[in-house]
Design a binder for these strands. Sequence first.
DNA 1: ATCCAGGCAGATG
DNA 2: CATCTGCATGGA
Length: 276
Amino acid sequence: MTTFQLEKDPYFDICATLECGQVFRFAPIEGGYRAYALDHVCEVLDRGDRYEMRCDDEAFFRRYFDFDTNYADIRAGLEDGGLLSEAMAFGQGIHILRQDPIETIFSFIVSQNNHIPRIKGIIERMCERLGKDMGGYFAFPELEALAGAGEDFYAEIGAGYRAAYLDRVAKTLMETDMSAWNALDTVSLRGELMALHGIGRKVADCALLFGFNRFDVFPVDTWIKKVFAEEYPNVPADKMSTLLVQKYGKYAGFVQQWLFYFKRTKKTVDKSNILS
DNA sequence: ATCCAGGCAGATG
DNA sequence: CATCTGCATGGA
């Protein structure tokens, strides 16, 4: 275990970064969060003027949390003085994590037509039963373990109809040379992902954004559909996604994440206000 | 209880 | 090319 300190920055907030919906393996702890990625773990503790990072691999988590990207520059060209600016202020501390491609592929297959609490549970059970025991937590499973588990395993842990997708994608990827994928342009790489059974435009775009660091994408889910229902009436999700990439350009993925977090969280807040 | 969730594949106009 | 339907599960 190593520890390093991180001065507070207006454009990084651990809560917003983990809770915004891009990642499922984390948990709040006393004074901060514990985040898991592949076989690594990091505790992020709020010390007022700084974050204290306690982790097993400093270089891994400096990259994972995307501390080298200049968010002020990215934001500068995107402000619109309207809804987007409001969402950007709300999600001011979001960093797009640099997650593992395999972990994002399987996580977002699980996510389709599903609730976030259930998604977390299914992924957690995948790790508990197929991942390496790291002593206190479990690693995300190796592709070989995912491919050897069988469809019935995924059904047992509650994956529902996605069980067949998970099994088939794992087995297909075992036969796939993914090493050339990083050299592909975004559209070609999306094609490779969508060729996998159970991965459509939305899951592919999430993997591209969170697992392959492609920002010229705009995953369109039920929440984003609600945001743009008036601006793009009766436009199917995949076409809406293409239009939004054209509109927001090479940083469209950041815009998507701000709007998604804003819309989804605002709804929750509104509900609790009504109840209280 | 009924609806719905970070959608997808397959079938049908 | 566009639209429709079934799908497993469980939280709200």
